[in-house]
Amino acid sequence: MEYYEIELSTIGVYTYHYAFFDMFKKYNITTLGQVLDDNLMYGIMEKCRQKSRRELCSFISLMKYKYLNIPIPNDYLLDRKIATIEYTLDDTFGSLGFPELCIKDLKNQIQNQGNEILNITIKDFFKRLISQGQCRDATRKIIEIYLEASEKKNDLASNNDYDTLKELKIQLENLIKIRDDLDFEIKKFKESLSKLEERSIGDK
């Protein structure tokens, strides 16, 4: 089966705990192909609340990594120490694409592990959770995607053969396309906002 035909209900990390779940239901978003269709997803993001939008944005990044091998932009958060993000755990784990229930799960795990957990990085915390086998299924599946991506990143940084170079070139091209698409959307919204302001001044 081609990746774009895969049903979201079968991929494991997609759960009804995501804030955008009802939007997907309403707009009949049921396949991975739809989630990886940037135009369709930008359209959904325009319609939903910030919390749903942020979760959706991170979820798309996870899917782009898992199925298109595009690096995850937010993976730099994995190198942060728990202590440095203690007061923004919700935002941080939300940015990494965990739905609310999984965030509660992760925060409970941090509380249960004692103070020494504060001095390790999120990546090491994730490794510990996997080895302890204590988190719920949806949380574990997202963690596994990050740990796999991290290992792959290390491999690409330590090898120096021609295949590595080719792989990095593809990653670079994919990220440049994402950056350019974002620039286009940002420009579009700036123009829409200017028009709204002009109209508002004209009404006065």
Partner: peptide, 9 residues
């Protein structure tokens, strides 16, 4: 580039 994308998002 990843950091730039995260900021643009």
């Amino acid at each position: 580039l990843k950091m730039e994308i995260a900021n643009k998002q």
